[in-house]
Design a protein around this nucleic acid. Sequence first.
DNA 1: TTAATTTTTTAGATTTGTCTAAACATTTAG
DNA 2: CTAAATGTTTAGACAAATCTAAAAAATTAA
Lengths: 227, 227
Amino acid sequence: MSKHLVRYTKMQSFTEENYLKIIYHLSQNNEGSVQTNAIAEKMQTRAASVTDMLRKLSEKELILYKKYQGAHLTPAGRQTAINVIRKHRLWEVFLVEKLNFKWDEVHDIAEELEHINSQELVERLDEFLAFPKNDPHGDPIPDKNGNFDFVPFIKLSKLKKDDRGLIMGVSEHSSAFLKHLEKLGLTLGKSLTISTINQFDGSVEITVEEKKISVTREIAKHILIRI
Amino acid sequence: MSKHLVRYTKMQSFTEENYLKIIYHLSQNNEGSVQTNAIAEKMQTRAASVTDMLRKLSEKELILYKKYQGAHLTPAGRQTAINVIRKHRLWEVFLVEKLNFKWDEVHDIAEELEHINSQELVERLDEFLAFPKNDPHGDPIPDKNGNFDFVPFIKLSKLKKDDRGLIMGVSEHSSAFLKHLEKLGLTLGKSLTISTINQFDGSVEITVEEKKISVTREIAKHILIRI
DNA sequence: TTAATTTTTTAGATTTGTCTAAACATTTAG
DNA sequence: CTAAATGTTTAGACAAATCTAAAAAATTAA
Ligand SMILES: [Mn+2]
Ligand SMILES: [Mn+2]
Ligand SMILES: [Mn+2]
Ligand SMILES: [Mn+2]
């Protein structure tokens, strides 16, 4: 770790925080231990670099790691990860609510802001934003103790004909995807009904605000619905 | 803005930005070229490290540097430095005005926030704050073109008996110093009159809001007055 | 259950920013 | 004007995070 970061009395470097965050997200999806290659892909780095970092995080007791066995977060590692995610999502709310950014413009900036190291800052930001429960993409914001409600979602691609529901989130945060949804009018809170499911390509026809819209299976997989 | 320009303007690391900022501040005080040891002291590092960095910044044409001759910012270097200072001061305003931090609590957090890399973010923050002209310590905030008014100040320690003036800034940003001023009631905008100058130790007795306050020379040197 | 494939780790280099110790240059004082 | 003091640079080393190439382990398929 560079002296520069140490001066800010950070326990973890930006890099370490990013690894912990990614391990957290991957362990949400897969429920098991997180593999080296999966981390490498998300971190846009090489497997060899991941192995080095896993050893280091294990040394610091932020993860459990055995050679060839993948990684698990320890309670300390999970706490750090959740705090980074809390900051990321609060900053995204700030950017959208206060600075009028669009939901597709905030992720990259929040990737930087999430590493700002001041607990006081986070708590005051939370208060300033009136303790939001969800970020602009529908993701839950952990409270200062790391707790948040898990609201069960169903992917749009899993719904059946005539099912109705509300758009509560997305599982893909790229600007291109979010811009596309916006263009289709598929924003958070919109209610929809499944009109047709095309058996050939899995695309779905849905009705939103009296209008019929066709959505490819690939896109439907990333739209999260509450019935 | 072209992608090319964006990448060119932020190819600086946090460390490089901090060096440029410090060189800028030191060249304001001394008007001449900035010496290696002066930079080393501000950066809390060793002269040898500074020499390495000066060579690197010179290579990147952000400073002019000749061995044993100290450093000068180039226009590109100055632009980067001023942009970092702009961000630092805007974030300080945000922290005080929006998140209710005290003026002695914001500097360290702003030292981190000043490196967040999004020109769009800075401009929107500026607008959100209603284009403030000064930060919580009275320092001027450069506009998006790097321009700001230079308001001439006199150090409190330079005033004569019966001189009157307004507290317009401070030249020391440590929490201890600012807390002390606050306790004495010496905050920005307060008007004062010099009652007595003690010839022995250079301390000054001033009248602020009908109250007599004694200020050591050391403190008076860091209080900036507009007459 | 052996062979092929995939995944992961090791070994050794590289880059960035730092350090100490020592050499060198410049400035100041006698 | 020389000598001492001060300021700066060089040489060589180190830690963090990364890389490539190659070896080793685990998984999958034949
Ligand atoms: Mn995001
Ligand atoms: Mn989000
Ligand atoms: Mn400051
Ligand atoms: Mn300030």
